[in-house]
């Protein structure tokens, strides 16, 4: 599928593609939004500046995915970002959770970044060419995130004492939601069949576990047992009150007049 026009001619293809794009866009927007909440609050000034760039990158990636959706006949990117209901949001619940402490934010980011890297890799040869092209670019930008988060993750673990304890608590909290990041939602099978994504979710998950176990070893952390099924499945539009609050805040000004130019 070279273009939006072609994709729009195949109903089943379009349905699956759109659903995946919403997952990608919502993941990035939600995490970027959470990241931006660290502005002015990071442990040191230089790190504050760096973390904000990560936040901007994530929102920038969301913009890209929303633009793809718009090309496919969905509403304009701002409407998609600011005016969709809670039940229409497809991000993994892990990413909507409040930031917690630096250990939680770093660990969550790192774990998501590794997943995102694998998912992007599986999109670089997507049958939907505009998505494949974007995935290559986005993956290059994500390199820095992975590097940066990995540095913190490993160092906090290796430092022992309070840092390690906090990191262990963070992992424990993340484990409640981690199951929700894997998987491509209700159209998973179709997405793979259509080669929109070139690897099944299960295979990516196995690779994620391998890479993460390595990082845990570096950080001198014990690998926890397997995770429980998630309480909310974000990929199916189920979300925590934390996302509801986030969306309230995010759209506060937008809602004053959604037709106005701000």
């Amino acid at each position: 599928m070279e273009s939006a026009e072609q994709a729009q001619k195949n109903e089943a293809y379009l349905l699956a593609l759109r659903d995946l794009l919403y997952q990608l866009a919502d993941d990035e927007l939600t995490l970027g939004h959470r990241d931006s909440e660290w502005l002015g609050l990071s442990p040191d000034i230089e790190g504050d500046v760096a973390f904000s760039s990560v936040a901007q990158d994530e929102v920038g990636h969301a913009v890209f995915y929303f633009e793809l959706l718009h090309e496919l006949g969905e509403k304009d990117p701002d409407r998609l970002a600011f005016a969709r209901d809670l039940s229409e949001r497809k991000n993994a619940v892990l990413l909507e959770r409040e930031n917690g402490d630096w250990a939680y934010s770093i660990a969550r980011h790192f774990m998501y970044d590794v997943w995102d890297d694998l998912r992007l890799e599986a999109l670089t040869e997507s049958s939907y060419v505009p998505l494949a092209k974007g995935a290559i670019k986005i993956r290059r930008e994500e390199y820095y995130h992975l590097l940066h988060m990995h540095s913190y993750f490993v160092r906090l673990g290796q430092a022992g004492k309070e840092a390690k304890k906090r990191l262990e608590l963070a992992v424990k909290a993340i484990w409640k939601d981690i199951g929700g990041i894997f998987g491509f939602g209700v159209y998973e099978q179709k997405l793979v069949e259509f080669n929109i994504i070139t690897k099944p979710a299960e295979e990516l998950k196995q690779r994620w576990v391998k890479r993460m176990q390595q990082a845990f070893a570096e950080a001198q952390l014990t690998w926890p047992d397997s995770w429980e099924p998630v309480q909310y499945d974000g990929r199916r539009g189920e979300h925590s009150p934390e996302l509801e609050q986030l969306l309230q805040t995010m759209s506060e000004v937008y809602r004053i007049d959604p037709t106005a130019r701000w």
Partner: peptide, 17 residues
């Protein structure tokens, strides 16, 4: 110049600062 805990972090922070 910048302040950093280690050379690898200094490198990462330099990019954004």
């Amino acid at each position: 110049s910048l302040m950093a805990p280690s050379p690898d972090l200094a490198m990462q922070l330099a990019r954004e600062n």
